[in-house]
Design a protein around this nucleic acid. Structure first.
Lengths: 198, 198
DNA sequence: GTCTATAAAAGGATAGAC
DNA sequence: GTCTATCCTTTTATAGAC
């Protein structure tokens, strides 16, 4: 099944924005990769920024199928799922020889004078990711000390992932990612209720 | 005292790259802000990327005077200094109405097909920052549990700062930064030796 | 070292036939 | 909805006089 023109444009733009960034991706790049002509692109989108908005919608709507489902295949324990998600990012770092950057995080820092609607959609993507992690934490609520703020902790998982990916990419060394995740794991352990060893 | 031409170019580029990003800053922007003519810029620099390299050198060489000195004025305790540095970033977020982005982190994610020399200089900047934090942690070594990895912990401080700045900027809300730093502080507390209350 | 003018290319977007 | 051709602006970089 051949995808329709609009979908081909969004797919191509999604990949190019990730590989090269938004400003370094030209309309010509998108046309070339999607095998679409200029007139068709401008038939579907008023301009380049609108392609970006469609890409951000695609990321937001695809978080379940494209990110969480593969990360969580065969894993049921909610806390293991949090670290399985982080392991998926580790795999992306390895697969890209440490050039991987989170597409949302990279766009969030690249776009300086972003239209409010762009910024809002970036935030929506972060929120979707954090909500998925928070749901895991809430499912494991009994294992955390009473009063643990799962919202703040879920945000912190994103914080650490983004900062860790940034350093692994800059140093081209996954060990920076691993050390950060190890620190996060230690923090998690300290928030858990102390179990009596059987 | 009027700065020489080269310094004016570097100053202007440093500010513009921070405000708009590298790709969105044109040579014309730099010329306009520095009040320099095209011929002069190309007399000092072969091209735009070489201006970037000079900017990255300036950040690296200025970390003490421009960042640590103001952050640490009047603060002697090494652990307090770590969080004072983070408070400085909080001030930058507030002062910019939550548009602040770490100039090094933003460039690290914006530049996708970066020349190795650019990437190396970005890493040098991270290393300088982490080394300053690590020196604080080592000065307070007696207050951490034996065997605490101060290198990994210093890297983690950078990880959290970068991830926290990214979210505060994307949501335009400093509370995201504050919550991340609170989590980091809790992690620090858990690494400390348990003091007997007097 | 500095100045103006300009080359040469790339980029976003549009026109109008089909 | 799609096609080709093209306009117009921006951008990096250079030329050559002073």
């Amino acid at each position: 099944m051949i995808k329709d023109t609009r979908a081909r444009i969004v797919d191509a733009a999604m990949e190019l924005f990730w590989l090269k960034g938004y400003n370094s991706t030209s309309i010509a790049d998108i046309l070339s990769r999607s095998q679409v002509n200029s007139g068709s692109l401008y038939h579907f989108f008023p301009g380049k920024q609108d392609v970006l908005l469609a890409v951000l919608d695609a990321y937001r709507d695809g978080i379940g199928e494209a990110l969480l489902k593969p990360a969580w295949a065969g894993i049921d324990d909610p806390l293991e799922r949090v670290f399985a998600l982080l392991r998926l990012y580790r795999g992306l770092i390895i697969d890209t020889e440490c050039e991987y950057g989170c597409p949302i995080g990279s766009l969030a820092l690249e776009l300086h004078e972003a239209d409010p609607i762009v910024r809002t959609k970036l935030a929506e993507n972060f929120t979707g990711w954090v909500n998925a992690v928070k749901a895991c934490l809430d499912s494991a609520a009994s294992r955390f000390a009473p009063g643990t703020d799962t919202q703040a902790l879920a945000e912190f998982v994103l914080t650490v992932m983004e900062g860790a990916v940034m350093q692994a990419r800059t140093y081209r060394d996954v060990a920076f990612f691993d050390r950060a995740i190890a620190q996060l794991a230690a923090h998690f352990d300290n928030l858990k209720v102390k179990e009596t060893v059987v």
